[in-house]
Protein backbone atom coordinates (compact mmCIF):
# COMPACT_ATOMS: atom_id res chain seq x y z
CA UNK A 1 0.00 0.00 0.00
CA UNK A 2 2.81 2.42 1.01
CA UNK A 3 4.74 1.47 -2.06
CA UNK A 4 1.70 2.13 -4.21
CA UNK A 5 1.21 5.56 -2.60
CA UNK A 6 4.85 6.40 -3.26
CA UNK A 7 4.49 5.38 -6.87
CA UNK A 8 1.31 7.41 -7.14
CA UNK A 9 3.05 10.51 -5.75
CA UNK A 10 6.03 10.05 -8.05
CA UNK A 11 3.71 9.66 -11.05
CA UNK A 12 1.76 12.77 -10.04
CA UNK A 13 5.00 14.75 -9.69
CA UNK A 14 6.22 13.50 -13.06
CA UNK A 15 2.86 14.33 -14.62
CA UNK A 16 2.89 17.87 -13.19
CA UNK A 17 6.49 18.45 -14.29
CA UNK A 18 5.69 17.28 -17.80
CA UNK A 19 2.57 19.44 -17.85
CA UNK A 20 4.57 22.52 -16.83
CA UNK A 21 7.32 21.67 -19.31
CA UNK A 22 4.69 21.18 -22.04
CA UNK A 23 3.02 24.49 -21.17
CA UNK A 24 6.40 26.24 -21.22
CA UNK A 25 7.22 24.58 -24.54
CA UNK A 26 3.92 25.76 -26.01
CA UNK A 27 4.37 29.35 -24.79
CA UNK A 28 7.98 29.37 -26.00
CA UNK A 29 7.13 28.08 -29.45
CA UNK A 30 3.93 30.06 -29.93
CA UNK A 31 4.15 33.30 -27.98
CA UNK A 32 1.06 35.55 -27.81
CA UNK A 33 0.41 37.34 -31.12
CA UNK A 34 1.64 40.97 -31.18
CA UNK A 35 -0.91 43.65 -30.48
CA UNK A 36 -0.58 46.92 -32.35
CA UNK A 37 1.41 49.40 -30.33
CA UNK A 38 2.73 52.90 -30.83
CA UNK A 39 2.07 54.35 -34.25
CA UNK A 40 -0.79 52.00 -34.98
CA UNK A 41 -3.14 54.95 -35.48
CA UNK A 42 -1.20 55.85 -38.64
CA UNK A 43 -1.94 54.27 -42.01
CA UNK A 44 0.36 51.62 -43.53
CA UNK A 45 1.44 53.94 -46.34
CA UNK A 46 2.30 56.73 -43.86
CA UNK A 47 4.25 54.31 -41.68
CA UNK A 48 6.09 52.97 -44.75
CA UNK A 49 7.15 56.43 -45.92
CA UNK A 50 8.12 57.46 -42.38
CA UNK A 51 10.26 54.35 -42.03
CA UNK A 52 12.00 55.06 -45.34
CA UNK A 53 12.65 58.63 -44.24
CA UNK A 54 14.10 57.52 -40.88
CA UNK A 55 16.35 54.91 -42.56
CA UNK A 56 17.63 57.55 -44.96
CA UNK A 57 18.28 60.05 -42.15
CA UNK A 58 20.26 57.49 -40.14
CA UNK A 59 22.22 56.45 -43.24
CA UNK A 60 23.05 60.05 -44.14
CA UNK A 61 24.76 60.67 -40.81
CA UNK A 62 28.14 59.49 -42.20
CA UNK A 63 30.42 62.54 -42.58
CA UNK A 64 31.33 63.49 -46.15
CA UNK A 65 34.63 64.91 -44.89
CA UNK A 66 37.65 62.97 -43.54
CA UNK A 67 37.06 60.91 -40.41
CA UNK A 68 38.96 58.21 -38.54
CA UNK A 69 37.71 54.74 -37.64
CA UNK A 70 39.76 52.66 -35.19
CA UNK A 71 39.18 48.92 -34.71
CA UNK A 72 40.81 48.48 -31.28
CA UNK A 73 40.48 44.68 -31.33
CA UNK A 74 42.21 44.19 -34.68
CA UNK A 75 44.54 47.18 -34.15
CA UNK A 76 43.60 48.83 -37.42
CA UNK A 77 43.01 52.48 -38.21
CA UNK A 78 41.06 53.63 -41.25
CA UNK A 79 41.11 57.15 -42.62
CA UNK A 80 37.79 57.47 -44.41
CA UNK A 81 35.81 59.97 -46.45
CA UNK A 82 32.16 59.04 -46.84
CA UNK A 83 32.12 55.30 -47.45
CA UNK A 84 35.61 55.30 -49.04
CA UNK A 85 38.71 54.08 -47.17
CA UNK A 86 41.50 56.54 -48.00
CA UNK A 87 44.20 54.87 -45.89
CA UNK A 88 44.51 51.80 -43.69
CA UNK A 89 47.16 51.58 -40.97
CA UNK A 90 48.31 48.96 -38.48
CA UNK A 91 48.27 50.52 -35.02
CA UNK A 92 48.59 49.59 -31.34
CA UNK A 93 45.69 50.12 -28.95
CA UNK A 94 45.17 49.68 -25.20
CA UNK A 95 46.46 46.58 -23.40
CA UNK A 96 43.45 46.24 -21.10
CA UNK A 97 45.82 45.83 -18.13
CA UNK A 98 44.98 47.13 -14.66
CA UNK A 99 47.42 49.10 -12.47
CA UNK A 100 46.75 49.73 -8.79
CA UNK A 101 48.49 52.34 -6.71
CA UNK A 102 48.69 50.79 -3.23
CA UNK A 103 49.31 54.16 -1.54
CA UNK A 104 46.57 56.34 -3.00
CA UNK A 105 44.21 53.42 -3.68
CA UNK A 106 43.86 54.57 -7.30
CA UNK A 107 43.24 52.14 -10.16
CA UNK A 108 43.94 52.67 -13.84
CA UNK A 109 42.54 50.48 -16.63
CA UNK A 110 44.57 50.75 -19.82
CA UNK A 111 41.77 50.53 -22.38
CA UNK A 112 41.43 52.64 -25.50
CA UNK A 113 38.13 54.48 -24.97
CA UNK A 114 35.30 53.41 -27.29
CA UNK A 115 32.70 55.62 -28.88
CA UNK A 116 32.74 58.80 -30.97
CA UNK A 117 35.30 61.52 -30.28
CA UNK A 118 36.77 64.50 -32.10
CA UNK A 119 40.33 65.67 -32.64
CA UNK A 120 40.76 68.31 -29.93
CA UNK A 121 44.43 69.23 -30.31
CA UNK A 122 47.17 68.84 -32.95
CA UNK A 123 50.85 68.83 -31.99
CA UNK A 124 54.08 68.83 -33.99
CA UNK A 125 57.11 67.29 -32.21
CA UNK A 126 55.01 66.60 -29.12
CA UNK A 127 56.54 66.41 -25.67
CA UNK A 128 55.06 63.80 -23.36
CA UNK A 129 54.04 65.06 -19.93
CA UNK A 130 54.18 61.76 -18.07
CA UNK A 131 51.14 61.11 -15.90
CA UNK A 132 51.30 59.55 -12.40
CA UNK A 133 50.73 56.00 -13.67
CA UNK A 134 53.88 56.14 -15.83
CA UNK A 135 56.00 56.56 -12.69
CA UNK A 136 54.02 54.15 -10.52
CA UNK A 137 54.18 51.46 -13.18
CA UNK A 138 57.96 51.67 -13.25
CA UNK A 139 58.23 51.88 -9.47
CA UNK A 140 59.64 55.40 -9.61
CA UNK A 141 58.96 58.39 -7.40
CA UNK A 142 56.47 60.91 -8.84
CA UNK A 143 58.33 64.22 -9.46
CA UNK A 144 57.08 67.38 -7.79
CA UNK A 145 57.58 69.62 -10.84
CA UNK A 146 56.09 69.58 -14.35
CA UNK A 147 59.65 69.73 -15.77
CA UNK A 148 60.37 66.38 -14.12
CA UNK A 149 57.52 64.82 -16.06
CA UNK A 150 58.58 66.02 -19.53
CA UNK A 151 59.92 63.46 -21.98
CA UNK A 152 60.78 64.23 -25.62
CA UNK A 153 60.82 61.88 -28.58
CA UNK A 154 58.46 59.30 -27.10
CA UNK A 155 55.35 60.33 -29.08
CA UNK A 156 56.91 60.55 -32.54
CA UNK A 157 56.65 63.52 -34.89
CA UNK A 158 52.96 64.33 -34.46
CA UNK A 159 50.12 63.81 -32.01
CA UNK A 160 46.35 64.21 -32.25
CA UNK A 161 44.63 64.69 -28.89
CA UNK A 162 41.14 63.28 -28.26
CA UNK A 163 38.89 62.55 -25.27
CA UNK A 164 40.60 63.39 -21.97
CA UNK A 165 44.33 62.76 -22.12
CA UNK A 166 44.39 60.30 -25.03
CA UNK A 167 46.43 60.75 -28.20
CA UNK A 168 46.96 59.24 -31.60
CA UNK A 169 50.74 59.46 -31.80
CA UNK A 170 53.93 57.92 -33.16
CA UNK A 171 56.03 55.21 -31.57
CA UNK A 172 59.57 54.02 -31.03
CA UNK A 173 58.28 50.44 -30.73
CA UNK A 174 57.24 49.82 -34.34
CA UNK A 175 57.68 46.03 -33.91
CA UNK A 176 54.70 46.10 -31.54
CA UNK A 177 52.33 47.68 -34.06
CA UNK A 178 49.37 45.33 -34.48
CA UNK A 179 49.39 44.33 -30.79
CA UNK A 180 47.41 45.67 -27.85
CA UNK A 181 50.23 47.15 -25.79
CA UNK A 182 49.45 50.79 -25.04
CA UNK A 183 48.05 52.57 -22.00
CA UNK A 184 45.00 53.66 -23.99
CA UNK A 185 46.57 55.89 -26.65
CA UNK A 186 46.72 54.79 -30.27
CA UNK A 187 50.25 54.32 -31.62
CA UNK A 188 50.75 54.74 -35.37
CA UNK A 189 53.75 54.22 -37.67
CA UNK A 190 55.62 57.32 -38.93
CA UNK A 191 54.32 57.47 -42.52
CA UNK A 192 50.71 56.78 -41.59
CA UNK A 193 50.89 59.36 -38.80
CA UNK A 194 52.17 61.99 -41.22
CA UNK A 195 49.28 61.31 -43.64
CA UNK A 196 46.78 61.32 -40.79
CA UNK A 197 48.06 64.61 -39.44
CA UNK A 198 47.83 66.23 -42.86
CA UNK A 199 44.27 64.97 -43.53
CA UNK A 200 42.68 65.90 -40.22
CA UNK A 201 41.65 69.14 -38.56
CA UNK A 202 40.48 70.09 -35.10
CA UNK A 203 36.96 68.66 -34.92
CA UNK A 204 37.61 65.66 -37.19
CA UNK A 205 35.56 62.76 -35.89
CA UNK A 206 37.17 59.62 -34.47
CA UNK A 207 35.06 56.45 -34.17
CA UNK A 208 36.59 53.79 -31.93
CA UNK A 209 35.11 50.31 -31.44
Amino acid sequence: MFRDKKTLLASAALFLSLLMWGAGFYIGMWPPVETEGKGSDRSVSRLKSENQYLKQRIKSMAPDVFYIVIDSGNNRLYLKKGARVIREAVVSCGSGAVLRDPDKKTTWVFDTPRGVFTVQTKHVAPVWTKPDWAFIEEGEKIPGTVQGRMETGMLGDYALGFSSGYFIHGTLYTRLLGRNVTHGCVRVGDEDLKALFAATDIGTRIYIF
Binding site: E34, E36, G39, R42, V44, E50
Partner: peptide, 10 residues
Protein backbone atom coordinates in the same frame (compact mmCIF):
# COMPACT_ATOMS: atom_id res chain seq x y z
CA UNK B 1 0.94 44.32 -41.69
CA UNK B 2 0.41 47.58 -39.88
CA UNK B 3 1.72 46.15 -36.61
CA UNK B 4 5.05 45.20 -38.21
CA UNK B 5 5.47 48.64 -39.79
CA UNK B 6 4.54 50.28 -36.51
CA UNK B 7 7.10 48.11 -34.72
CA UNK B 8 9.77 48.96 -37.29
CA UNK B 9 8.84 52.63 -36.91
CA UNK B 10 9.29 52.43 -33.15
Amino acid sequence: NRASFAKENG
